[in-house]
Amino acid sequence: MLLLALDTSTPAVTVALHDGERVLADATTVDPRRHTELLMPLVTQILAEAGATRSDLTELAVGVGPGPFTGLRVGLAAARTMGAVLDLPVRGVCSLDILAYGVLATDPPGEPFAVATDARRREVYWAAYDAGGARTGGPDVGPAADLGTTATPAAGAGARLYPGAFARALDPEYPSAAHLAAAVAARAVEILPPDPLYLRRPDATPPSARKSVLTR
């Protein structure tokens, strides 16, 4: 088995290769504005590091958000296209679940926790988890202050952006493809179709009545 995992739902562009037992190679670059530039070079880089080629791949995994739309689509477009070309299954995973898996792998709080990422416009994408990492609320989007989580620790950049809304910040700050790969390889997360979780409608309003161009 050779699984390629990637996530572009946050400023972190993250990729990893997993052989079913362990992560063979992974790479992450944090840059909110360069997802299209960074993603595929990182993929070729880790393939080379692992001494593998694209034709060795047997499975793909991709974070499906929620996350800022433009970056999120970069990962989904790449995963779907690679899946179509190489005829591989593409497993979608809620990107907040990747962070939750990462919490248990790196910084387990031993109590219920939340995951919050930056949704811009003074809001967060969030989900709530029990101490064992099962999702109990969300994914949803809203102002951090409205979550009622001041007594709950939280992972993700949202917990760092809005420290007053959570008890304390947990690691990790960003989703890691190494965690995504491990979670999918162990079938330890809910698998979704590789479709974006936008959670917000496009900003657009039908035109209003036309304005006068004549002076009164």
Binding site: H35, T36, L39, M40, V43, T44, T53, R54, F69, T70, R73, V74, G75, A77, A78, A79, R80, T81, M82, V85, L86
Partner: peptide, 19 residues
């Protein structure tokens, strides 16, 4: 900008997948 990125990302993945 956002529309271009979908095509460019797909094209890069296609090129890598096809080598």
């Amino acid at each position: 900008a956002g529309a271009l990125m979908v095509g460019v990302s797909a094209a890069k993945a296609l090129a890598v997948a096809l080598d």
